[in-house]
């Protein structure tokens, strides 16, 4: 089962994830003005929320991570060497 961790220090309370999630996994916590997870069982790990979150405040644990064959291994190798 998916587990979603929200970094409350990072969350800016913009509500983008709440609007973007097709399965209403998130809701705004009006008192804290932060997002909160309310329906984790409906999360399909599409990770649209990761893409839209300006603060990268969420982490999905124990999900199927799709292959990324578009990653250029040679470029990555060179980047690793530089960094």
């Amino acid at each position: 089962m998916v587990n979603i961790e929200i970094d409350e220090d990072a969350c800016v309370g913009c509500g983008s994830c709440v609007e973007d999630c097709p399965n209403d996994v998130y809701e705004m916590d009006e008192t804290k003005n932060k997002t909160k997870v309310v329906k984790v069982e409906d999360c399909m790990a599409c990770l649209s929320c990761h893409e839209i979150c300006p603060a990268q405040a969420m982490e999905h644990q124990d999900i199927h991570v799709a292959k990324r064959l578009y990653i250029d291994r040679k470029v990555n190798y060179e980047l690793d060497r530089i960094i």
Binding site: M44, C46, L47, H50, I63, H64
Partner: peptide, 10 residues
């Protein structure tokens, strides 16, 4: 197509 995302599409 219901929804598209970077990790999965429904």
């Amino acid at each position: 197509i219901d929804h598209v995302g970077p990790n999965a599409c429904l």
